[in-house]
Design a binder for these strands. Structure first.
Lengths: 241, 241
DNA sequence: CGTACCGTTGAGCAGGCTCAACCGCTGTGG
DNA sequence: CCACAGCGGTTGAGCCTGCTCAACGGTACG
């Protein structure tokens, strides 16, 4: 009888993805996209990696050979510009996908913000698998579309909005994505990272968090952990555009 | 002998998509994604539509039954917020795809900016086709990924940047996507549309175009047609972040 | 225990927003 | 045919908010 140890890829150690689907039925919340069979198929061509925080996963404009799926931890995806400025394109969490190449090259640099567990999948093996499994590929299409919608919303929210509102919406995003149990929010990245993600100066981020603390909307338990104190006011800040 | 008229879907009247691919070979420019066979397969399940400018294609939060591909013309995709503000998520051009649903509903309202020719494809028929044709689905995955990258770049560029720079990058985007022969740029949308796309007030857009005209970077041939006068300065404005 | 680095706070400045007036084009009705 | 209203676009004046530069406190790590 096959005991759990006999499985080459037990289900608690196989890639998974999560997103809001095209069709109805998910109640508007992200749901797991992959069946256990699909996860095992991916696990069969994936390599498990553990990376320490601050490790670079790959650099922008280098040849792309792998796609990555996060098992646990947080990464940031950013780009350095000629002017020397660094812009954070996004933060990535468990069950997220990254490394989709453009013209054979990675478009951003990706770096571990916390200690990280990754699945690394060779692009050509994945492409082959997807081409022959329409069901599986549909899940990937769903995931990428989900990220696209998120990015569009973020673009709208980041655009023309006061610092307090931007920080509130950032915390709201963290709350949805982060593992910490509400109303606590884990915010492991630096203020500078948050700032260059939101298009603010780090001083503006500081002042915004100070303002939110002052009016008792949030409270800091430590420098990198926030608690929502006044949920009503918080949600209003996030929703108002 | 089959004359051109015998084809149910001649190739000059079938959906097409364009994007930068995952792999190398496209020289970094968008290329046609679909083979003639694939285009005919899509044409077989598509309905051709002609819409007058200002027509609403669909409204946000309504049930989604179709996917659309633009044959010619320009649309804007936007959302109205409780505060009454309208935010333009993006403009869409020929060989673009729109209407990907979230939880069975359209996420934005889409409206024709110019007279429009569309292919309208039933979602379930498309989903069925994609599931059974991994090659075709891969092209769609490629297109959605391409749009995702564009949106990420736009989010970065729109964030924290002076009005003149934002307008310059908007014109640059129009130049790439628009049909007009360089150095002319066709800008059919209103200043208000541009403003709510860039996260500026329409006054700020006016002042920015005025400034660009004053220093002879661009020139207006009429209210909705621009010509690049100083290409060097223009490109520098677009590239600098 | 010292040294960086991260985060916070303050002062002054610049650029965009708001409010408001004005111009030119379009379409409409007398 | 013309007068007028409406809309889109431009320009001006004053305010507000976030950026820059700078100093300072706390924490982490050697």
């Amino acid at each position: 009888m096959a005991s759990r140890g006999d499985l080459r890829t037990p289900l608690d150690d196989a890639p998974s993805l999560r997103a809001i689907t095209f069709g109805t039925g998910g109640e508007g919340k992200p749901v797991p996209l992959l069946t256990s069979t699909q996860r095992q198929q991916l696990a069969a061509i994936a390599t498990r990696l553990r990376l320490r925080r601050r490790t670079i996963v790959y650099r922008e404009d280098t040849p792309a050979s792998w796609i990555f799926i996060i098992a646990s931890g947080i990464t940031k995806s950013f780009r350095d510009f000629p002017s020397g400025k660094r812009r954070v394109a996004g933060f990535l969490f468990a069950e997220d996908l990254f490394g989709l190449a453009e013209n054979g090259l990675y478009v951003n640099t990706v770096q571990a913000v916390t200690d990280l567990r990754l699945y690394r999948i060779p692009i050509d093996a994945l492409q082959n698998l997807l081409q022959h499994d329409g069901q599986l590929q549909l899940r990937f299409l769903c995931k990428v579309t989900h990220v696209l919608r998120q990015t569009q919303r973020q673009k709208i929210l980041v655009t023309r909005r006061d610092a307090v509102g931007r920080v509130a919406m950032f915390l709201s995003m963290l709350e949805r994505r982060c593992a910490a149990p509400p109303p606590a929010i884990d915010m492991p990245m630096s203020r500078a990272d948050v700032a260059s993600y939101l298009g603010l100066s780090s001083e503006a981020v500081s002042r915004a968090t100070a303002a939110l603390t002052r009016d008792r909307t949030i409270a800091f338990v430590d420098r990198h952990t926030v608690r929502i104190v006044d949920r009503g006011r918080f949600d209003r800040l996030v929703a108002d555009v």
